[in-house]
Amino acid sequence: MRPASFEYHRATSLDHALELLHEFGEEGRPIAGGQSLVPMMNFRLARPGHLVDINRLPLGGIEIDGQVLRIGALTRHEAYFNDPLIARHFPAFLDAVHYIGHPTIRRNGSIGGSISHADPTAELPAVAVLHDADIVVRSVQGTRKIKAVEFFLSAYVTAIEPGEMVVALEFPLPPSASTGSFIEQSERSGDFGTASIGITLQFAGGKIGKAAMVCSGADLFPIRAPEIEEFLVGKALADPGAAEAGRIFAASIDPVDDHIASADYRRGLIAELTRRAIEAACTRALDKS
């Protein structure tokens, strides 16, 4: 269980990294924390010919840039725990990061790496999809922003093209009368979830305005739940019909049936997590209003 041979390049600037990735095309992979990529390489399930080490590039940081919160690709997971901007604007995000891995993984893993790896039930992809984040991808040709809902194509498959790399995620800032929640269940704490649900709500006058919902575990990548988002509009925060929402959503999905969990269980669990996430978000909204 040791990697196949590759060539190593330490990028000295973002342009340098992009030039290297351009040069190597399919054979090139950026490496940040390595918490997802290196296990795959040790199993020889991933065998890039060239690794472009971006760890020393200034790509970290969480900052407000106009109407978005911009999170640099090299931001490590542990940074969110004590970040005031995350706490203030993105309660579902903050909930979610508590489910990520273990301390050493959180210290070294990066958002760019997690998003690019695209594990089906990883937390940060779900968070990006929930918040309609733009995934900012660069190559020598320039920058493109990909909507998170269009970024994840399947398990471990994304819209990143050869020569491209994730440089940041941009989360649109929500209005002040909004909140959210994220609930995940896994077999052990720190494991990738069996299923997870994230909710964001805008609210006014004791009612839900706009809502968003994401689910991991129903498909091979995190999916939105447009029918539930519509269902929630206008519902009273005190009685949002969360259980019904869970039932409706669970009936609409076709989760995989495998050795980790049966499709029936996944459906039942997702229904219940949907209810709990909606109720948790509504409780927060009531506390805030």
């Binding site: 269940q185 077999e187 069996t194 980790i260 969990a261 049966s262 029936d264 269980y265 039942g268 669990l269």
Partner: peptide, 13 residues
């Protein structure tokens, strides 16, 4: 595991 216990709890739900 969670799946097994969930299945065993079916009658209660």
């Amino acid at each position: 595991n969670t799946n097994a216990v969930w299945k065993l709890s079916q009658h209660i739900r």
